[in-house]
Design a protein around this nucleic acid. Structure first.
Lengths: 205, 205, 205, 205
DNA sequence: CATGAATGAGTTTTCATTCAT
DNA sequence: AATGAATGAAAACTCATTCAT
């Protein structure tokens, strides 16, 4: 930045990066909403910028393409998800709490996360092309956790844990959509019901 | 008509399934493949017609719009699904066969159906806007069936059957995609594993 | 027509030209209605044939193009109009009837003609590109008639008869549309009112 | 900005009438000409933009559709016509000038207006679907004016003024087309001739 | 006489993206 | 940091017309 530019910026009294960063954040936010509600193709760059009150070129100042902003939202989701599940290391040192309680902790965390991040979850986890990969990763994680429990002898040995993990992940997805996001049920209740069924089954013993 | 023409006509089968009907069927078939593989927006009418070896206007001879042919494929799925589950009346007179066997019958039928109708299932059941409604209907059906079993005392009374039904439907969807369509597993095996887990849970008793 | 064709026709038992001629007439009729009501561009060949219950190629069996059938309707109008005004030779041998009566005869004939031939009048006289020419011809005719009367000393010498003729022709057109075709007035009444005004003016003397 | 650029900008008039506005005006102008000369259907958006030296999308930057720009021209005509006739309030206090002079003033104004606004007059007043309505409005206005004169005793009481108004309006239209726009006659002369005939008729007294 | 099937040649419209300033 | 103005490239759709039978 040469002295001339400094003068300009000084004259306009900009806090460094402030205005631009605000536009950028705003567009991301609006894009999340639009993509989540209308999907990638029905979301127009024009809609995003006009809702953000900026011009079309402003969009390309911050995002290289429509794909890019979409991807950025997916990345956002991935990072947050990583923060969530990366930490939940249910490995070897299993706590003394009851089995279902332990599992509920993780499940509830996911539901709560999906509840709080509805837009990007919808985009990344439900609709994007990468949803398959993301779910695959999460499934592997869950399968890993289940395997630990199995090795500890909590679970039956004749269960195909990859199938079990798929059931868990798909149930999370669907219950999030049909129960959580519709307000029909809370993260707490869904978690309880789900764990109950998956751990013990539905058959009367 | 000389003998050569006779051959041609014979080869083309002019009589059975008029030319028009053949073009129509062909386009539907190609469209199913394209929509399933590339989605609605990436599927171009131009691709469908060129693969079908006809001109663009020919498309509009048989379908009023791109949306219309898409919807027709969804309707096709819905009709076939209705034929499948409409008949599976798990009514009062429950047979003496074992519980899991009974349930497996229905589940296997669905997996087999999804296996045989991969394209339209992908379109209608996985990707279309109406997928939500379709699943809702199927979920209700499953919940109804479960409720009958519950009334017969086979299932625990404290289970939320709507949640159970959601778990079933979402598991079917996911396992179809990850196991069945990838060839990782057969309808038979998936059914067995799924029923095992959902009926009895994964916990060692 | 060779003997083979004769056989075919004979076999089908067709009265010569009957069927085809009927289709042709029917299409002309429908076309007249459609063109009059919706104009040239909004009238589709497809609409004409489907209303006539025939196939598209049948149209081209009788008319070489959409333009051609349109032109044929205009020609129809022109022929009929010619029959009408060609005869009305108000030349030298002027009858002893009163001036206005003489003029009314011609005018009433035109209004009645337009009333009976609404569709082709609308097409040829109001909307077609040739309307200008047709009106020009009719205007010249009227001017000719007026000139005869003028020479006989019935009309003022300082009147520009070409302007007068234009006023007559345009009034006929407009009153046909707004009074006659809407049913607001009859040919008889319009004629009287019009002649009254144009002969004597509206000023109180 | 160097002195050359200054020249250019000056030449292009960047400040006054922004570039966009200029493109818009230009397209409106060209469209008026095209629609007037070739009609709605033979006028292609492609012709307008290529004559304006811009790309097709530029058209849609300023007009939502081909219909829209057509309508805008009609609106333009209506507004201008309203300015013209809205003011011409022939109210109670009729001036001492002669009757024909009074009427000539209004008529001449219309002819002059049509002469100066040939394109939009052709479009809106002659060819558009709304021409009928527009003429209806103008006819009512004229009839109103005539009625005032009639009440003042200038006109005969036995005249159907709605018919008279129709004659006036249709004559204006026709004489505009055949005399004014062809250059055969001037607004001044046509007005005189028309008023003469309509006020006093063509009969020698 | 008649048609089922098909198409050439447009035409409007859309949208992400960029240029010049 | 920002934008007014513009566009390349496609896409869906239409319709008069014709071919083969």
């Amino acid at each position: 930045m040469n002295s001339f530019e400094v003068l300009i910026v000084g004259a306009r009294g900009r806090k460094k990066g402030s205005d631009g960063e605000r536009s950028r954040k705003l567009m991301l936010q609006i894009a999340a909403e639009e993509f989540a509600q209308n999907g990638f193709y029905h979301t127009k760059v024009g809609t995003i910028v006009s809702r953000a009150g900026v011009s079309q070129p402003a969009f390309y100042l911050y995002f290289s393409s429509k794909e890019a902003i979409y991807q950025e939202l997916i990345d956002q989701f991935n990072i947050k998800l990583e923060e969530l599940v990366g930490n939940s290391r249910l490995d070897s040192d299993i706590e003394p709490s009851s089995l279902s309680e332990r599992i509920e902790v993780g499940l509830r965390a996911i539901f709560t996360f999906f509840e709080k991040n509805q837009y990007i979850t919808k985009i990344a986890f439900i609709h994007s092309d990468q949803a398959y990969k993301i779910k695959e990763g999460l499934t592997a994680k869950i399968e890993g956790n289940l395997r630990v429990e199995q090795e500890y002898g909590y679970f039956r040995a004749d269960i195909d844990l990859s199938i079990a993990a798929e059931i868990v992940i798909s149930s999370i997805e669907r219950l999030t959509i049909t129960q959580l996001w519709t307000g029909k049920s809370t993260a707490e209740d869904i978690t309880k019901d789900m764990v109950q069924i998956i751990l013990n089954g539905i058959v009367k013993k």
